[in-house]
Nucleic acid binder design. Structure first.
Lengths: 326, 326
DNA sequence: CTAGGTGCAAATAATTTGCAGAGGC
DNA sequence: GCCTCTGCAAATTATTTGCACCTAG
């Protein structure tokens, strides 16, 4: 009946009517269910299911990766389906006990740095912001369109990832176009032109995909941000472009490009892996590869340029012309 | 007897032998105790204390702010003394079940931004990194000197805060010295000289205090970082100084100074408030005020300079407070 | 047929509560 | 003497387990 059913049903252990029933009921829900919530829900359709069975099934689902256990400090566990939900963090309202979800690449990056500094191998990070949500503060509240909780998460995640990717590609395009314009060296110009062309193509793909996505749900654009990330567009190419405006030589432009492509590659890689949506995943991972290729190309060019400067005309050992020491 | 005792004993509720005993035992410990751990410890000195009393006392301590409840997802609560422990985050080893603590101003700043974006009023943030600690990975392990857990936290926190403050003041000093050197305008030069002098003084105070702190515990310098912060030194004045080297005019230098002082003020304010140590707290809060004063001074100068540039001839020595419309 | 799934009831485990008695002001 | 604290035992809550029984492959 449900084609998802088979994809989602974990391997290991035998199937059984009860298990299937519990799994199905669980996946139909969208929030964070407690074990007892689930018992009640299941019993509506299949009375006589034992609590223990539900507990055992939940355990099995967690082991199999179909569900994740979350602890909001209530003294009991809640469970969320992992399908369609990238690992995320929570804002938890202490008044209405609802939670909304977010992801922050910046926080994740910091956490990794800290763990490394402490020589700690992180497996999982929990970030929970307890406080009061807008509705509970302002009184009135229609939870639906504002809360990010449950079914829409996947779409909002895709939306945000695409937005960031588009912004990244846009500034990449601008950067390479500008770099090509100011590069005198013919070979360097070719490289920048080529990269600009590829970024333009990526951009078109991403914008198409964004349009398609928005078409599936007109409300999607108005939903709050789920994925917070400052790194890509605002920080890398943009910064590079600013430097370009001030005037740099081809070599410096290459260095900036290298830095930007590295960040860009990391972004596509990291979030490509988190996409549940197979199409988005594929696009992101492909782009990650291409950005990686750009990176390699830039590095190669950079080396070639350095060599040409060092050898052909016996100039002073100073590698770059403009850069004075200190 | 114990002067701390009275300071730490929460108001509300009457004193009693048992409560005092439990409180004392709790404060003597350094780790994260579970209720049962505490029952055992208390019973060593005062047999016959009921579990319920310990639970009730813990609840009372948490309400009074003497203790904090922490939940590591073990299915039971643990408690940590809040005295000497600024609110912090945890790295939790799933193998040895020990935890170590850290603080990240950067993470906190991001959390605030995210909460604001979602119109959420945050009251408390939990960040827990689960994984494997170094000792458990490499085999051997002497937990003591590496783990930050318990009594030393306060000192390490002070150490890190001071280190950051010193770095900030150092780059502030460098920045203003350089700015004074390149400023032709006499009035502007005076301002920069004055600020440089003050930063020099702050720096001396902080370095004295750092020396004193290290003197209390020679091992202190080798302990791992507790407070992670990228903003102050690395990001603000340093960046400003780099720009100065490239050559800017007095007006631009003022703007850079304004940005830096703002960051600096925020840093001292934020972490001054967290210091349990009253001396450190006082120094930090004083500095926060002074940096604020610098900020005002710079802003005033900046406005004055703008005005002078706009109306070259008629100079008005009085502070031109007139806020241009905006 | 047989490993594993299932329901029920009993067992744990952490924490709370009712209540009679003890203790501090 | 009054009010709160305290200890004990019983209650509560979330979750697990033992065990006899059942079911799918």
């Amino acid at each position: 009946m449900d084609p998802d059913q088979s994809r989602l049903r974990p391997a290991g252990g035998k199937h059984s009517t009860k298990r299937d029933q519990i799994l199905r009921t669980f996946l139909q829900q969208e929030g964070h269910l407690s074990a007892d919530d689930l018992v009640d829900l299941v019993r509506r359709e299949a009375p006589g299911v034992g609590r223990a069975t539900v507990y055992r099934t939940l355990q099995w689902m967690v082991e199999a990766g179909v569900a994740r256990k979350v602890d909001f400090g209530e003294g009991r566990s809640r469970f969320e389906p992992s399908h369609g939900h990238p690992r995320h963090f929570h804002l938890i309202c202490r008044t209405c006990h609802r939670s909304s979800e977010f992801l922050s690449s910046d926080v994740e990056a910091l956490v990794e740095e800290i763990a490394t500094a402490r020589k700690f191998a992180p497996a999982q990070t929990v970030v929970q912001i307890y406080g009061t949500c807008e509705e509970c503060r302002t009184g009135a509240g229609r939870p639906d369109s504002r809360t990010i909780d449950g079914a829409t998460t996947e779409l909002v995640f895709a939306r945000d990832a695409l937005r960031i990717a588009i912004a990244t590609e846009k500034s990449g395009l601008e950067f390479y176009t500008r770099a090509a314009a100011i590069t005198k060296d013919a070979r360097g110009r070719t490289v920048f032109d080529k990269l600009a062309a590829e970024e333009r193509e990526h951009l078109a793909t991403l914008e198409d995909r964004y349009r398609d996505l928005i078409a599936t749900d007109p409300e999607l654009e108005s939903r709050p941000t789920f994925l917070f990330f400052k790194g890509a567009a605002g920080g890398l190419f943009e910064e590079g472009a600013a430097k370009l405006r001030k005037g740099v030589n081809a070599q410096q432009a290459l260095l900036i490009g290298i830095k930007c492509e590295r960040g860009s590659h990391n972004f596509f890689k990291r979030y490509g892996e988190r996409f549940e949506d197979s199409q988005g995943k594929q696009i992101f991972l492909e782009f990650a590869d291409e950005e990686r290729a750009h990176l390699d190309l830039l590095i190669r060019e950079y080396r070639a340029l350095s060599d040409r400067q060092r050898q052909p005309r016996p100039r002073r050992p100073a590698a770059t012309r403009a850069r004075s020491a200190r």
